Computed example of a mutant assay.
Amino acid sequence: MAKSKDVRVRVILECTSCVRNNVTKESPGISRYITQKNRHKTPSRLELRKFCPYCSKHTIHGEIKK
């Protein structure tokens, strides 16, 4: 079965500062958001400022692979 070629795709955004700060088993986790983007208008990776509950501030969340 072939993948669909939909224009709008689902992407996962992950906090970049939590990833950089070496998450260990003691840390609470990594903030992730799920959103959609238009594949034709935004072919590059998406980066948005979102609230990270683990950092307790607004940080840049970047698109990751599924």
Rank of each mutant, 00 (worst) to 15 (best):
K37S: 06
V23E: 11
K66Q: 04
H40T: 12
V11W: 04
S4P: 01
N38V: 10
K66E: 02
P43R: 05
I30V: 15
T16F: 04
P53H: 04
N38E: 06
V7F: 00
D6F: 02
C55A: 12
S31A: 15
Q36L: 02
K57W: 11
C15T: 09
K41S: 12
R32H: 07
Q36K: 14
V23H: 13
T24Q: 10
K57V: 14
R20C: 07
K66T: 06
A2E: 03
T42V: 05
T24D: 06
C52K: 02
M1Y: 11
Y54P: 02
E14I: 09
Y54V: 08
K66C: 03
K65V: 03
S27E: 10
S17D: 14
M1P: 11
L46S: 05
R10V: 01
C55N: 10
V23S: 14
E47T: 09
Y54K: 06
N22M: 13
L48W: 01
N38L: 05
V23Q: 14
I12Y: 02
R8G: 05
C52G: 06
K41E: 12
P28L: 12
G29K: 11
R45I: 05
G62M: 11
M1H: 11
T42W: 05
T16Y: 02
R45T: 07
E14A: 15
C52W: 00
K57I: 09
M1D: 11
P53M: 00
K5F: 01
I64V: 15
C52I: 07
R39E: 10
P28M: 08
K57F: 10
S31T: 03
T24H: 09
K50Q: 12
V19F: 06
E14K: 10
L48R: 14
L13I: 07
S44F: 11
I60G: 00
T24M: 09
K37E: 07
T35C: 10
T42H: 13
L48T: 00
M1W: 10
V19K: 15
K57R: 15
S56W: 04
K65E: 07
D6Y: 01
S4E: 08
T35D: 13
K65S: 07
N21V: 06
T59H: 03
G62V: 13
V23P: 13
S56E: 15
A2T: 07
